[in-house]
Amino acid sequence: MGTVLVTGGSGFIGSHCIVQLLAAGHRLRRTVRSLEREGVVRAMLQQGGAEPGERLSFVEADLQRDAG
């Protein structure tokens, strides 16, 4: 399976998409405004029944900065 970039994954629809993509065996790269949110996102996914492990990585995309 390929790697899928997911934006907006904190919302209701986005989080369900992430769970389904993981269940289908995809690797995911998910954007967050701050990398400090990684633990919160992983906990949310675990509550939804997903155990992404190494198949989920994070990249910072801060829309408040030009570098993001």
Rank of each mutant, 00 (worst) to 15 (best):
Q46G: 11
T31G: 08
R29A: 09
L5K: 02
H16Q: 15
L5R: 02
Q64D: 14
S10V: 05
S15R: 11
L21I: 07
A24Y: 10
G53W: 06
E36A: 15
V32I: 10
R42E: 06
G53Q: 05
V6E: 02
T31D: 09
H26R: 12
R27L: 09
L21C: 06
G2Q: 12
G68F: 02
V19I: 15
T31P: 02
G53E: 03
R27H: 14
G2F: 00
R37P: 04
V32F: 10
A67Y: 09
V6W: 06
I13P: 03
L35A: 10
L35Y: 03
P52D: 03
R55T: 01
Q64F: 11
R27K: 15
G9F: 04
R65F: 11
R29L: 10
A50V: 08
H26Y: 15
V40D: 15
S34C: 10
G48H: 14
A23I: 08
G14F: 04
M44A: 14
E54W: 03
A61E: 05
L56N: 07
R55H: 12
R27D: 15
Q47D: 13
S57K: 08
S57T: 10
A24P: 07
L22V: 07
R55F: 05
G9L: 01
G8Y: 04
R30Y: 14
V40F: 13
D66K: 12
G11I: 08
D62Q: 06
E60T: 05
A24S: 15
A50F: 00
R55I: 04
F12M: 01
L35K: 10
G25W: 09
L35F: 03
V4Y: 04
D66M: 10
E54L: 08
C17S: 14
V41C: 08
A24W: 12
G53Y: 04
V40C: 06
S15H: 08
G39N: 11
P52W: 02
G11F: 06
Q46F: 09
F12K: 12
D62E: 10
L56V: 05
D66A: 15
R65K: 15
I18R: 03
E38P: 05
L28G: 01
L22I: 06
E51I: 09
L21G: 03
V41T: 10
T3A: 07
Q46H: 13
L56M: 10
G48P: 05
R33E: 07
V19E: 12
G48C: 09
L56R: 03
L45W: 00
F58G: 00
S15C: 09
L63N: 08
L5E: 03
G39E: 13
V19R: 14
V40I: 13
S34A: 13
T7N: 01
R27M: 09
D66P: 11
D62F: 08
A50D: 02
V59C: 05
G68N: 08
L63V: 12
I13H: 05
P52L: 06
L5Y: 04
E38F: 01
F58M: 05
F12W: 13
A43Q: 13
A23W: 08
G48Q: 13
G48Y: 08
L5Q: 01
E36Y: 04
E54C: 01
V6F: 01
A43D: 11
L5M: 01
